Computed example of a mutant assay.
Amino acid sequence: MRYRLLKHLSEQPQASQRHLSEVLGVSVGSLNYCVNALIERGWVKATNFRNSHNKLAYAYLLTPSGIEAKTRIAMRFLQRKLEEYEALEHEIAQLRSEVAAAQAPAGEAVSD
């Protein structure tokens, strides 16, 4: 979830926590906890601004260390998915061989 949250914050820094919680499929409380953890790590900086409805809101900006963290997390995710993809390719090749062997004629058919 960290990567998805960092990605959304980098793309939509003025998104509300309610909107982010809906997009990520978590409760507002859980999202708030995660955002605060990112702020404590120094990956995100929250700045105040006033939106068009004249309510106090925040813009969440990724810090340089947050951008680096997002990149590291993305690289680990990509590596894991590539390993899963290669394992699936191998499994599919094995299954195709088994199916081909099962469909090959096994000699003469027995007649009724």
Rank of each mutant, 00 (worst) to 15 (best):
R76A: 14
E22G: 09
A46V: 05
S27Y: 06
W43T: 05
E89W: 05
K81H: 07
L38Q: 11
S10T: 12
A74C: 05
A69E: 04
L95H: 08
G42L: 02
R96H: 14
A104G: 03
S97T: 13
E84S: 13
R80F: 12
K70R: 08
E91P: 02
L88G: 06
N54L: 09
L24N: 01
L82M: 07
K81E: 13
A93N: 13
Y33M: 08
E89H: 04
I92W: 02
E68R: 15
S27M: 04
Q17H: 13
R76C: 07
E22A: 14
A102L: 09
A101L: 04
L56T: 15
Y60P: 00
R80A: 15
L24V: 02
N36G: 00
S30Y: 06
L20W: 02
L31G: 07
S97L: 07
L62S: 07
Q14A: 14
S21E: 04
H90N: 15
A104E: 03
E40L: 05
P105Y: 08
L38P: 03
Q17Y: 07
V26K: 12
N36F: 08
A69Y: 02
T63F: 02
A104V: 04
H8F: 08
R76W: 06
L24G: 04
N54Y: 09
F49D: 06
C34K: 00
V23N: 00
L78E: 09
Q103W: 02
A37P: 01
E40D: 14
A100S: 12
N36H: 04
A101M: 02
I73C: 04
E83Y: 12
A93S: 15
F77H: 10
L62P: 03
K45L: 14
R72C: 02
S27H: 03
Q103R: 05
E86M: 08
A93T: 08
K55Q: 15
E22K: 10
N51I: 13
L38V: 01
L95V: 03
T47C: 01
A100L: 02
Y58E: 06
V35G: 07
S30H: 09
I92V: 13
K81D: 06
R80Y: 14
S52G: 13
L62Q: 01
E108I: 07
F77I: 13
N54K: 13
S97R: 14
N32S: 14
T47A: 05
E86P: 00
K70G: 05
A93G: 11
V23H: 03
A100D: 08
V44F: 08
W43R: 03
A37G: 04
V28I: 11
V44P: 08
R76P: 00
E22C: 08
E68C: 10
A104T: 01
A109S: 08
A93R: 14
G66M: 11
E91T: 15
Y60D: 00
E84M: 12
V26G: 06
L82G: 05
R96A: 12
K70I: 01
R41M: 12
T63W: 00
A102Q: 09
F77A: 02
L9Y: 01
Q17G: 15
N32P: 07
L56G: 14
V28C: 03
N51E: 11
G29F: 07
A59T: 02
V23P: 01
I67T: 12
E108Q: 10
I73S: 05
K45H: 05
Q79A: 11
K70P: 00
E84N: 09
R80M: 10
E91L: 12
